[in-house]
């Protein structure tokens, strides 16, 4: 089955939480030099939880859709909860099968999120 399902393409074409937050508590940037994907991510925290999160991504469908879906999920979640997220979670969240080469694209957003939580 194609990985380009409607839900994925929808998040790619109309990303949720896209953009920059003006005064974030934390911001980070990650980059995959091999394919040129890059993600900047911004967050505002309230106590231990993410109050607001946003990102700017350039890259393939998978990396962008993954960032969009993950940002939706992350809102109102605690740092502890989010630190537990792993590869299996991301693959499940996307709901598509990915070969070893494309998994890296999907995981870039998670890498950015984890850096925000440090």
């Amino acid at each position: 089955m194609s990985i380009y399902q409607e839900r994925i393409l929808d998040h790619y074409k109309y990303p949720r939480n896209q953009g920059e937050i003006e005064k974030p508590d934390k911001k980070t940037a990650v980059h995959n030099p091999l394919c040129g994907d890059s993600i900047k991510m911004y967050a505002v925290f309230e106590k231990n939880k993410i109050k607001k999160i946003s990102f700017i991504a350039s890259g393939c469908v998978i990396s962008k859709a993954s960032a969009s879906l993950l940002s939706e999920y992350a809102v109102k979640k605690s740092k502890e909860q989010l630190r537990k997220l792993d590869k299996a979670f991301i693959i499940n969240m996307l709901g598509i099968e990915l070969g070893p080469n494309r998994v890296k694209c999907a995981l870039l957003a998670l890498e950015a999120l984890q850096k925000l939580l440090i």
Partner: peptide
């Protein structure tokens, strides 16, 4: 992104390189 093109071409059994 070239990776997306290559992946979609693969759905039609076309093997190209992207990167």
């Amino acid at each position: 992104h070239p990776h997306d093109i290559a992946q979609l071409l693969n759905d039609d059994h076309i093997a190209v390189r992207a990167g």
